[in-house]
Design a protein around this nucleic acid. Structure first.
Ligand SMILES: [Mn+2]
Ligand SMILES: [Mn+2]
Ligand SMILES: [Zn+2]
Ligand SMILES: [Zn+2]
Lengths: 153, 153
DNA sequence: AACATTATTGCAAGTAATTTGCAAATAGGG
DNA sequence: CCCTATTTGCAAATTACTTGCAATAATGTT
């Protein structure tokens, strides 16, 4: 978990940048929070430790982490127009999104990488990342919608 | 292609709605345009035939089509924060996005549906749609970046 | 340890891409 | 042709960031 902080520290130095208290705090917050938090969520949680932390600093840090490949931004249908930020490597790479309750579940699936490699070879392109999103009904919503055979009427 | 217009007409009637000239125009524009146009692009093209058409009408129609399952909204990294709208069924279901030139290529890949079915069974969820996005360098950008073995120096 | 240098931050104002309220327009049934 | 609920055009509002700038503060230097 401090692995992220270490990697970030290395990138900062390599670029002649500075490891500030805000960056440290945001990095720690990112590892403490559940998957794909929004900038607001990162800010709200981090502000519990430093109430002076500004939301724009959170955005700037998130974008810097994205440029360094340590964080991956995501957008989900039905979640308004805000971005979500996932720590690269942590949690699953793919997502299942319930179109009824908007719940987002993460998962990994090696087969997807195989599909990506196949596409890359056939089209002479390089693929650095593959992201699969499945849309449907989660177990609970599916059960509530198709209530046992025979219905409740 | 008028297939879309017919399906739309059916949904309109079913909901006690009206098939206006604007809706007809937007539907025709959608089938005439290349894949995943933005609302602005749909508006610009449709306005060539009806300069009074308002952008908000385009948005309203696009969202109505989305609710009817005839159009699927997409967001791509590196494309600012605007939405793109794909006709359901037309073009490929999956996308390759060049992170250098931002080009977006569409493709189909049956294996992805297989992955989706597997996930659905193992997690007791229903999957209605699967969307794979590959990020990398397109053939041209890859060639320009890795210029033959030996380099140009 | 104090200094100098310049990356980073906080704050406020600005922007892009929609979204919404509302009065005027009109599709379609009678 | 009328009626009237559905749509539209227009303008104002909103969301989710993004940016300019003066004040701060992290690091290398003395
Ligand atoms: Mn969300
Ligand atoms: Mn675009
Ligand atoms: Zn659900
Ligand atoms: Zn390219």
């Amino acid at each position: 978990m401090t692995d992220l902080l270490d990697r970030a520290r290395a990138r900062v130095r390599a670029a002649g940048g500075r490891m500030t208290g805000q960056r440290r705090l945001i990095l720690e917050t990112l590892t403490a929070l559940p998957a794909h938090p929004t900038a607001e969520e990162v800010h709200a949680r981090a502000a519990r430790r430093d109430s002076a932390l500004n939301l724009s600093t959170v955005y700037r840090t998130l974008h810097w982490l994205e440029a360094e490949g340590l964080v991956e931004p995501r957008r989900f249908r039905g979640h308004g127009r805000h971005d979500h930020f996932d720590l690269a490597g942590a949690h699953g790479q793919h997502h299942f999104l319930c179109t009824k309750c908007q719940r987002v579940l993460e998962f990994d699936e090696p087969q997807v990488e195989a599909v990506a490699r196949g596409y890359a070879r056939r089209h002479a392109v390089k693929v650095h990342e593959a992201s699969l999103v499945l849309y449907g009904l989660c177990a609970e919503c599916a059960a509530r919608r198709a209530p046992v055979r025979g219905g409740s009427a």
